[in-house]
């Protein structure tokens, strides 16, 4: 089997997981698309250097997490994020969705639909410090084990536990009306 076929199979195998991770990290479909493509470009370039010291999925996830983190670090992203209006539509795979965040204390109680709920959760994740965000995405969304998360992030298990605990407390607090 040629190298390219191997690579294509790898993309097909991991694309959804990487895409979802990027989406939850970046909070934006378009950004996730570009970011996930970049992840696989990096995978393509470094595939020959992969020595199997970690599992292939850990390695791919590590590249994905680092790519997302680098992007989040860019001033451009931070600036754009600052200017996001809660009234502005959010890009999702199903087109634009308005966040329509309502002050529930003043509006009649109603069931939030799935998209709104998703957008609010996404916003709460995005508000987490980056180190907490990565563990929460990897654990609570990607359902990876603590060991895998430690392998991907380079954190020790104890740090993973404490960051996850803090992140979950913060999210429970932020989302208490939703959950």
């Amino acid at each position: 089997m040629s190298e390219n076929q191997d690579f294509n199979e790898l993309v097909l195998k991991y694309q959804d997981r990487v895409f979802n991770l990027c989406y939850r990290f970046m909070g934006n479909y378009e950004e996730a698309d570009d970011c996930a493509q970049e992840v696989f470009l990096k995978v393509y370039r470094s595939l020959k250097d992969f020595r199997g010291e970690s599992s292939l999925s850990t390695w791919v996830y590590r590249i994905a997490v680092n790519t997302c983190k680098n992007r989040l670090m860019s001033r451009e992203y931070r600036e754009r994020k600052r200017t996001i209006s809660i009234d502005a539509p959010v890009q999702t795979e199903e087109g634009e969705v308005g966040l329509e965040i309502k002050d529930e204390s003043r509006s009649p109680a109603r069931e939030l639909d799935a998209r709104e709920k998703d957008a609010l959760i996404q916003e709460a994740i995005a508000a987490l410090p980056e180190d907490q965000r990565q563990v929460v995405v990897l654990r609570d969304i990607e359902a990876l084990s603590y060991e895998e998360i430690a392998g991907i992030t380079g954190l020790n298990i104890g740090t993973v536990k404490s960051k996850l605990s803090r992140a979950r407390q913060a999210l429970c607090e932020k989302l208490r009306r939703l959950i």
Partner: peptide, 17 residues
Amino acid sequence: YAGTMAALPKVKAPADF
């Protein structure tokens, strides 16, 4: 919270990814 997060829809890569 854990139930809500686990139930979040998985966003898939576009078909032409």
